[in-house]
Computed example of a mutant assay.
Amino acid sequence: MNSVEELKRFVAVHAKGQQIPDFDRVLDRITTDGEGPGSWTGEWCTEAERLEDEGRDLEACRHFIMARFPFTGTPARLAAAERSVAAFERWRAGSGQDIHRLEVEIEGRKVGCWQSGLSATAGRPLLVLMGGNVSVKEQWAPALPVFRRLGMAAIVVDLPGIGENPVPYDEKSHRFLSGLLDAVADRADVTRTYALALSFSGHLALRCAMDDARIRGVITAGAPISEFFTDAGWQRGVPQITVDTMAHLTGTDLAGLRHWALPTERLAALDIPVAYVASTRDEIVPRADVRLLHRHVRQLRVLEHDDVHAAPGHVEESKLWSALSLLRMRKVLGPQRPALGLLYTLARLRARSTSAL
């Protein structure tokens, strides 16, 4: 059973990112991580069901996602996860959005994804969007048409071991990303692939880029790199939610992940741009990992926030900076780039003025 205090603290960035404006109202009703009234899954599901009854399927999906947070370790959370996918499908089918179901076979396992812009004739560059170890693809899928309008094919997929991705999450998981590129190579120019990979999927994407030259840029936020996996002292202070989630996904404790650290010589050999959103008060990823990137990654841009992990106080700012970083990596010089630059500047000013209050 999870600490309710930790659940409430770490879910904020996910609620804000999904534009759930009144999430505090739901949190105020939660007193336990059990089941039924007053429980984490129970209260989020109650709210989701109300939204379903009102025909607000995308909002219902987002609340079911909160109900399965941080991982599907109970039958109630697993049911909530399944209902989130069903609600998203209803919204997608009825909204006319350019978002489509994609199923591919990787390592003998069927993986469910969402995509926009795949075409056997258009030859668009590919964006792979992947969340972290406590999120699911339906959180990010509504953004797919944005990347399609930027001239890309885009796929959103769960991190291995999460949601509709049954590929094991282990030291070989980076091969999954190469397998995904192989599976859609006839519908996108995968030799120009960019990964927008958040938190632990950023670690996976960087590891894959060391072997797969088709990945031409990685944009990430709060990704563990090395000392998260090797520093036993740091690991003793990592929030229990992270410890439990990683144990659920990998079948081992953090000490058993020591060999997951990215080798510095391989980082130094990367010849691609890397954009990284860092938080100075990150309680999950040590500052030493960001310093290591500064020392060894040749084409590195870092956006730094005075915030905790995933920078919940700077969600809009981080989104715009990430999109702008993608255009920089692709060397796009059209009108979208200055427009995004202006929006990012305004978001940064708003965040500064809010923090000063």
Rank of each mutant, 00 (worst) to 15 (best):
residue 14 H to V: 03
residue 17 G to W: 11
residue 22 D to Q: 11
residue 26 V to G: 04
residue 30 I to S: 02
residue 30 I to N: 09
residue 33 D to L: 11
residue 33 D to N: 14
residue 34 G to C: 13
residue 35 E to S: 15
residue 35 E to N: 13
residue 38 G to P: 10
residue 47 E to K: 12
residue 47 E to T: 15
residue 49 E to M: 14
residue 51 L to H: 07
residue 55 G to T: 11
residue 62 R to L: 11
residue 66 M to P: 00
residue 69 F to K: 10
residue 79 A to P: 06
residue 80 A to R: 05
residue 84 S to C: 11
residue 84 S to V: 08
residue 90 R to K: 15
residue 95 S to P: 06
residue 95 S to D: 06
residue 95 S to F: 12
residue 106 I to E: 02
residue 108 G to I: 09
residue 110 K to T: 14
residue 115 Q to H: 15
residue 117 G to T: 04
residue 121 T to V: 03
residue 122 A to S: 05
residue 124 R to K: 13
residue 137 K to D: 04
residue 138 E to C: 09
residue 141 A to E: 03
residue 142 P to Y: 05
residue 150 L to C: 00
residue 166 P to S: 02
residue 168 P to G: 07
residue 169 Y to M: 06
residue 172 K to W: 07
residue 180 L to H: 02
residue 181 L to H: 09
residue 182 D to N: 15
residue 185 A to S: 15
residue 187 R to D: 05
residue 188 A to K: 02
residue 197 A to C: 15
residue 197 A to W: 01
residue 200 F to N: 12
residue 201 S to Q: 10
residue 205 A to V: 02
residue 205 A to W: 04
residue 207 R to L: 12
residue 209 A to H: 06
residue 217 G to S: 05
residue 218 V to A: 10
residue 234 W to H: 15
residue 252 T to S: 14
residue 279 S to L: 01
residue 282 D to C: 01
residue 285 V to Y: 03
residue 291 R to S: 12
residue 293 L to V: 06
residue 293 L to A: 02
residue 298 R to E: 13
residue 300 L to I: 05
residue 303 L to P: 00
residue 309 H to T: 14
residue 311 A to M: 14
residue 322 S to M: 09
residue 323 A to R: 07
residue 330 R to A: 14
residue 334 G to V: 09
residue 334 G to Y: 01
residue 349 L to P: 00
residue 350 R to S: 14
residue 354 T to V: 08
